[in-house]
Design a protein around this nucleic acid. Sequence first.
DNA 1: ACTTGCCTTCCATTGGACGGAAGGAACACC
DNA 2: GGTGTTCCTTCCGTCCAATGGAAGGCAAGT
Lengths: 247, 247
Amino acid sequence: MSASVTSRALDLLGAFDADHRALTLSTLARRAGLPLATAHRLVGELQRWGALARLESGEYVIGRRLWDLGLLAPVQAGLRQAASPFLHDLYGATLATVHLAVRDGCEVLYIDRLAGHVSVPVVSKVGSRLPMHATGVGKVLLAHAPEPVRAEVLGKLTRVTPYTITQPARLLDQLRRVRAEGFATTGEEMSLGACSVAVPVRGPAGEVVAALGLVVPDLRRERARLVAALQVATQGISRVLASGQWN
Amino acid sequence: MSASVTSRALDLLGAFDADHRALTLSTLARRAGLPLATAHRLVGELQRWGALARLESGEYVIGRRLWDLGLLAPVQAGLRQAASPFLHDLYGATLATVHLAVRDGCEVLYIDRLAGHVSVPVVSKVGSRLPMHATGVGKVLLAHAPEPVRAEVLGKLTRVTPYTITQPARLLDQLRRVRAEGFATTGEEMSLGACSVAVPVRGPAGEVVAALGLVVPDLRRERARLVAALQVATQGISRVLASGQWN
DNA sequence: ACTTGCCTTCCATTGGACGGAAGGAACACC
DNA sequence: GGTGTTCCTTCCGTCCAATGGAAGGCAAGT
């Protein structure tokens, strides 16, 4: 077992998460399970390199160098850039919160998000992961995911709100309709007061590479219009993906 | 001298940049200045942790775990989110490429960018660093940077296009005007066919925390309108920064 | 069949990581 | 002002894990 020296440094970085963006040295050491003296030395090296930065308060945070290193990840390199203008058009046309997401294992990973000044209660943030069965983009991605993934997700449908779908049969039925109709919807299944519509984004070979979604307070009246807007956008993105170089 | 074990792993990560997003093991080793066997082992650890991922081709790329770790960096955590809606308004009002940037050492670091479908030749990408003396946002940030930084930048004004300002005296004069007038402009100093306007973004205490800029093909006619639009946006951002929690 | 360029594994050596302990600095409480 | 607490930093002898040369295995190219 005995952790290698490199993995210790990585464990220190792993101690940071969305709820712990700034940590003191001792907290950092505790969370990484390292002696204080060891953590101190490693943190010093990470800081010197720019992976960590130190606030005036003395707390450590993820540094700029890691930030821009992360931007080189192919998660988004092309997709995000290709989609950006279309997300913007979509926002302009709908004034709804716009989401671009991909599947990462059995979760939805949000790779871009575009919100207005005031917005519906939305949980997602760029870089956050949410369950697939309770979000619009999640249902789309799940509907087009390989069978083993679908099986695993269906096996563990956790309840988030009173409206979350937790019966496998019912979700399966919905997924079938998502494939048939080309879009997915949710109604307060992830967050009360928030409904969503989502459509798949297809790559050059027709495979689903991402999902594009809108979050609105109420879906009843506008569904048709929103789906139409989404489809315009998704077709635009696919065209760019097919033509351009997107890694 | 002798690099510590941690810093070797970091050097491997540092071998990636905007022009080298995917590297073979041997290239990686060469760029990091490490023996192949050593690089092989370290890369393996990084991959196991999720810092690196391997493509089918065998090449290594930055992994998803580093991507979302990077998103926790305070570079953008609040600023970017607070600014986002205003950037869209700005794009809507001007249809120009919109930039949000901060100063990182002696360079400009672009933390957000919003471009339309067609755009002027723009070099910047989110996460990229450009010289301060040849960009609009750079001039703004430089004008409000601490003296030692200004001195260092002025000492090395590299030429990018025929229009790049390389005389310290002339740049100093411009910086004075930037402070007095509250905005900076460039004319093809970074990229031929691209002009820019930029204004400072101020934090709660009035300090300059970022710069907001527009890139357009021609500046002559529209300058006044663009500056006005920028100022509306920058004031909105400052208001959000002052009120909300942005850290 | 030979060469060249990749990647992977092995293992004896040794130099640098390790972490307990002690020293400091800042704050709070009585 | 003494005493306790919680943080950060530095030191240094021990010892173990990182090191990297060497060798082997593919795959492509000539």
